[in-house]
């Protein structure tokens, strides 16, 4: 805001965004938590909708709609020869801070690097753009499973080779990313705002996720093999 952006028409500088007085706030919070478990049932999946990207997907739940597009493998800006592809994930959201998005994107990159066959695409880059179209959930951690799912569909839609179908689940503000039928723990994201948990609780969470992982994986497999 301080630096005037002359490339965009942003309107007068003195303007203030609308602030809605929240009259009846946060009472349906508990209801939300409960529906969490059944959320897998209400996911809608689509792929191949963006024609100027190599692959794309839309994953929608009741409160989240993400549009992911895959560009590449395409040439990189690197001057030296890279034997493996580089993977980039860019998150575009109106709601969340850039710094938080950056952190999540780094987390996602490290998770996805476990499954994308980067060595098959020398000297190229694969870019994933995740657009947040509907973002009614307040915590970024809730988006992680959906983001991973949409990335996987978009990558497969682009025909980029992946060695495994990985998935993620969020329970109690902790996102767990699993691969290899749930045997492999690829990543763990704990929301800083969540309460302190000891190792025992964490282990329980992971075990719970492993149980549910197969059903979400099955859903993805059904989708991709049916179209």
């Amino acid at each position: 805001m301080n630096v005037q952006d002359r490339r965009r028409i942003l309107g007068p500088a003195g303007a203030k965004p609308l602030v809605f007085a929240n009259a009846e706030a946060k009472e349906d919070k508990t209801v939300k938590e409960e529906t969490q478990l059944n959320k897998n049932l209400s996911i809608s999946l689509q792929r191949g909708i963006i024609s100027n990207a190599n692959g794309s997907s839309i994953v929608e739940t009741s409160g989240i709609s993400l549009l992911t597009s895959v560009y590449g493998p395409r040439s990189t800006r690197s001057m030296s020869f890279e034997p493996r592809a580089t993977l980039n994930i860019i998150l575009q959201s109106n709601k969340f801070d850039t710094s938080n998005l950056k952190e999540i994107s780094n987390f996602l990159i490290s998770v996805l690097q476990c499954c994308v066959c980067l060595e098959k695409y020398p000297k190229s880059g694969i870019d994933l753009f995740i657009n947040f179209n509907i973002e009614d959930e307040d915590e970024l951690v809730q988006y992680i499973p959906i983001m991973i799912m949409s990335c996987m569909i978009a990558l497969m839609d682009a025909d980029i080779e992946v060695s495994d179908i990985i998935g993620g689940l969020t329970i109690d503000h902790t996102a767990v990313c699993l691969g290899q039928n749930g045997d492999q723990l690829l990543g763990l994201w704990k929301d800083p705002s969540s309460d302190e948990q000891d190792a025992l609780v964490l282990n329980e969470t992971i075990a719970k996720c492993q149980e549910q992982y197969s059903s979400s994986r099955q859903q993805l497999i059904e989708f991709i093999s049916n179209c």
């Binding site: 805001m1 942003l10 203030k16 965004p17 609308l18 602030v19 809605f20 709601k95 801070d97 850039t98």
Partner: peptide, 23 residues
């Protein structure tokens, strides 16, 4: 209160005196 401005800008703090009715 904390508000978010449009686009990619950061969160800023403002003294606010006009509010929108949410109903």
């Amino acid at each position: 209160m904390t508000i978010r401005t449009r686009g990619r800008s950061a969160t800023v703090k403002e003294t606010y005196d006009i509010l929108s009715d949410s109903s």
